[in-house]
Amino acid sequence: WVQCTKPECRKWRQLTKEIQLTPQIAKTYRCGMKPNTAIKPETSDHCSLPED
């Protein structure tokens, strides 16, 4: 599990088994990010989705 770092969101998201949760990902994670590439989402507001 990882928490969105966006102050107005802070929702918890479940990561897939393939993703290694590192301190860097935990510090920078935003809803919809692909942690294995550290690319921020380009599409709609993933923070608007219900918490996992």
Rank of each mutant, 00 (worst) to 15 (best):
K6D: 15
R13A: 06
C4I: 02
S44D: 14
C31T: 02
K27F: 08
W12I: 02
W12T: 02
T28F: 08
G32M: 07
T28K: 05
Q14I: 02
P23S: 07
C4Q: 02
K6E: 08
T37E: 13
L49R: 13
L21H: 02
E51F: 04
T5Y: 02
K34L: 14
T37F: 08
L49K: 10
P50D: 12
P50W: 08
K34I: 15
P23N: 01
S44I: 12
T22I: 00
C47T: 09
Y29V: 02
T28H: 04
I19W: 15
C9A: 05
W12E: 02
Q20S: 05
Q3N: 08
D52K: 09
S48L: 14
G32D: 04
K27S: 12
G32Y: 01
T5C: 07
Q3T: 03
T16N: 12
K40M: 08
Q24F: 15
S48C: 11
P50H: 04
M33K: 02
A38C: 12
Q3C: 02
L15V: 10
C9K: 00
V2I: 10
I19S: 08
E18S: 06
R30E: 13
W12L: 03
G32A: 03
K11Q: 06
T37A: 11
E42A: 09
I25D: 07
A38G: 14
K40D: 11
T43P: 13
P35V: 13
C47N: 14
T16Y: 05
E42D: 14
A26D: 08
D52T: 15
K11R: 10
R13H: 08
T37Q: 09
Q20L: 07
Q14C: 06
Q24K: 08
Q14E: 03
L15I: 14
K17N: 13
Q3D: 00
E42R: 12
I25C: 06
K17Y: 05
K11S: 06
V2C: 04
Y29W: 06
E42P: 10
W1D: 05
K34T: 15
P50R: 12
W12F: 02
Q14V: 04
T28R: 03
E18W: 08
R10G: 15
P50C: 05
R10M: 10
P7S: 05
L49Y: 06
T28Y: 05
T5V: 06
Q20C: 05
E42F: 10
C31G: 02
K27A: 14
Q14G: 05
K17D: 09
P50S: 12
S44Y: 11
C9R: 03
A38K: 14
T28M: 06
D52C: 11
G32V: 01
E42L: 08
L15A: 08
K27P: 08
C47Q: 09
T16K: 09
R30P: 03
C47S: 09
P35S: 11
L21M: 07
Q24G: 10
K17T: 08
S44N: 14
E42I: 01
H46Y: 15
Q20G: 04
C47W: 07
I39D: 15
P50L: 08
M33A: 05
Y29R: 04
K6W: 03
R10V: 04
Q3M: 05
C31H: 00
T28Q: 11
L49W: 11
R10P: 04
Q14N: 04
C31N: 01
T5K: 03
M33P: 02
Q3K: 06
I19A: 04
K6G: 01
R13T: 12
R30D: 04
P23K: 03
C9H: 10
V2T: 00
I39V: 15
L15W: 11
